[in-house]
Design a protein around this nucleic acid. Structure first.
Length: 645
RNA sequence: GCCGAGAUAGCUCAGCGGUAGAGCAACGGUUUCGUAAACCGUAGGUCGUGGGUUCAAAUCCCAUUCUCGGCUCCA
């Protein structure tokens, strides 16, 4: 009996039933067969060796396919497990999946500490095992047999996994001396794995639960060619150069002090300029969008947060209350601005005609993040949100939400963020006690967010369990230089706080109604935004943000006067810069300015002073020629304009 | 908070039981220079902090603070 196999190019071929993926690959070309790693059959990836018994559309997967890569890495995790077992008999295995770049395996090594030194040994063992070209063989086993095998092996983690599987769906994979509970699929044999690098060791809770035992997680990556590994490692090195913590130090943007306290950034003068430029940009955009700026204090009485519900939720894990001579008085450092803004709303009666009211504040807040969580500027304990709260009628929610999306997109576009993902963060339906508020309000808010995003044509990913405890969110996620994802902009619909604060407005029916609240922060926080911006542009900021836009470089001491004259002319026009009057040769001054990533270098000597010109050199581009100072100013101001609001 | 790694001059790092080192930066001098590093010299550290072992500790041990990689968390 024959079956029809349709290939990605649209062609359909007849094969006898039971043909394997490997055989199909061979029939297409020997070259393809040599690099084939797995096969996708009607969208499901499986081993090349498995027979195909019915007509299907298939795709042979190679290293160039994401599915091929993940199969390759998954198989590599098994080689690592085999090596671990060879070196450390009795090791117990958790799970070992492929990830975006490489793979890991969670293992329990008992009391034995596994450090960086052990990695090299393990890596060598893996190379040795990979060279054996061991085939991966798949075997279907009964639940009983599976339980027996791992009981004998004394691996409680695998037993736990098996206990949750249905009989008849369990498969083992075996290569060399290693057998693992595994759904597969795998590559044909270990010989494909030519280049191996174990990257790091970390702790990870079994099944991601803090209450479970912590296992040792070993991360690695493998490639079919050594050259590709070398390129990958080089890429990692390059990415590290963009790390905002490194550039923040090199460019004098921010620092931390053990004495001030961990996670509390100190903004240096240059970083402050950057930050203030961004603030001004946002202020203008918000004025245009109908926001009213407000200012509120950095502390609030405990009662404020009891009302908001934040005290109950975070009180014991936060900075503790500030006490006063009056022992009945307690204040909290504000961890968010919403309660203060609610009180502003409440300060007088509101009419439906007043709505929406949009209160905006660059509010500095303090949150006691777990010590191990702190990370440069992206996760800190004191930070400033570009916060605003929109109080509107229920019928205005969607429209307001869409306006906020437009504002966020405007910000991202102005700063060149193109690779963001829009995530609709929903409640975890299996864990409702984490959240406050009635089901129907949640359903409504979740629906409205999705509708607003759809209406603006946003491609969204819905993620359950990521909502705030009081409502669902639309989050804009951007990756840092090393591929870690951070949340920047956020928009949240909230039906809870208006209720808790008993916010009201008088409708056209002369009845009292409850407004809806939208929390939003397009940057998220200035700290995190600056961090991601630094990595995004590698420290080469857009001209309008650059802390130092120009530097004037006199050829020798004799032209210092003219250099200062040039600088003064520029300063009057709010152009930021300085004269490098050091007793150094021009080559040196240029080098230093290039290293500091200053966008424009104005070189002045005999000729320039005589003709009132400047010789312009652009960062990364080199000499772009001389021109009259007036002409330079004109061109510069065009180039340095703040993005149009 | 948990697992692992680390902390030496302003910065980047070497030294890993026998009286603290380099490069760059800083400071002084020479030089006055045309598009990515002039030359000579000087100064700078109780080796994160506190204990312990030792004739002797940057080096070994314990504790602690902070940093880094993950995990958990993220109002």
């Amino acid at each position: 009996m024959n079956i029809s196999i349709s290939l990605p190019d649209g062609s359909i071929r007849e094969f006898p039933s039971g043909i394997s993926g490997a055989e199909i690959a061979s029939s297409i070309s020997e070259g393809l067969a040599r690099v084939a790693l797995a096969i996708e059959v009607d969208g499901v990836i499986q081993d090349l060796s498995r027979p195909i018994n019915q007509s299907a559309s298939v795709k042979i997967l190679t290293w160039n396919d994401q599915g091929g890569k993940s199969t390759f890495w998954h198989s590599s995790a098994h080689v690592m497990a085999e090596a671990l077992e060879a070196l450390h008999p009795g090791v117990k295995f958790g799970i070992g999946p492929p990830i975006e770049n490489g793979f890991y395996y969670d293992v329990d090594l008992g009391d034995r500490a596994f450090g960086e030194d052990d990695l090299q040994e393990l890596e060598n063992k893996m190379k040795e095992l990979a060279k054996k070209d061991s085939r991966y063989s798949r075997r279907e086993v009964s639940k009983d047999e599976a339980m027996r095998y791992f009981t004998e092996k004394n691996d409680p983690y695998k037993l736990e996994l098996i206990s949750e599987l249905a009989d008849g769906t369990i498969t083992f994979y075996e290569q060399g001396n290693f057998t693992d509970l595994c759904r597969g699929p795998h590559i044909p044999h270990t010989g494909f794995i030519k280049a191996i690098k174990l990257l790091n060791v970390a702790g990870a809770y079994w099944r991601g639960n803090e209450k479970n035992k912590m296992l040792t997680r070993i991360y690695g990556i493998t490639f079919p060619k050594q050259k590709e590994l070398d390129e990958y490692l080089h890429m990692l090195e390059e990415a590290k150069k963009r790390d905002h913590r490194k550039l923040g130090k090199e460019l004098d943007l921010f620092t931390f002090s053990e004495k001030v306290g961990m996670g509390l950034p100190l903004w240096l003068p240059k970083g402050t300029i950057l930050r203030e430029r961004l603030e001004q940009f946002m202020r203008r955009a918000q004025v245009k969008a109908g926001y009213d700026p407000v200012v509120t204090p950095h502390i609030g009485s405990k009662a404020l947060y009891v009302t908001s519900g934040h005290y109950e939720k975070y009180g014991k894990d936060s900075f503790q209350p500030i006490h006063t001579p009056d022992e009945n008085e307690e204040f909290l450092l504000k961890p968010m601005n919403c309660p203060h803004h609610c009180e502003i709303y409440r300060s007088r009666p509101r009419s439906y005609k007043d709505l929406p009211i949009r209160l905006a504040e660059f509010g500095t807040v303090y949150r006691y993040e777990q010590s191990g969580e702190l990370h440069g500027l992206t996760r800190v304990r004191g930070f400033t949100q570009d916060d605003a709260h929109i109080f509107c009628r229920p019928d205005q929610v969607k429209d307001e939400f869409i306006k906020v999306i437009d504002l966020v997109l405007h910000v991202f576009k102005s700063l060149g963020f193109e690779n963001y993902t829009a995530q609709v963060s929903l409640r975890d339906p299996d864990n409702k006690e984490k959240y406050i508020g009635a089901d129907d309000l949640w359903d409504r808010a979740e629906r409205e967010i999705q509708e607003a995003a759809d209406e603006r044509g946003l491609k969204t990913v819905a993620v359950k369990g990521e909502a705030a405890f009081y409502g669902p969110k639309l989050d804009f996620m951007v990756r840092d230089a090393l591929g870690r994802s951070w949340q920047l902009g956020t928009i949240q619909v909230d039906y809870q706080l208006p209720q808790r604060f008993e916010l009201e407005y008088v409708g056209s029916d002369n009845q009292r109604h409850r407004p809806v609240m939208i929390h939003r922060a397009p940057f998220g926080s200035l700290e995190r935004f600056v961090a991601v911006l630094i990595e995004h542009c590698g420290g080469n900021f857009p001209l309008w943000l650059s802390p130092e836009q120009i530097t004037v470089l006199p050829i020798s001491e004799r032209f210092n006067d003219y250099a200062h004259e040039v600088l003064n002319t520029l300063k009057v026009l709010d152009i930021r810069g300085f004269v490098d009057a050091r007793d150094e040769k021009i080559g040196r001054k240029i080098r230093d300015a290039e290293v500091k990533k200053i966008p424009y270098m104005l070189i002045v000597g005999e000729k320039e002073a005589a003709a009132r010109q400047v010789s312009v050199r652009q960062h990364g581009k080199g000499d772009v020629g001389s021109l009259p100072l007036d002409e330079f100013i004109h061109q510069f101001r065009m180039a340095a304009a703040t993005p149009d609001n």
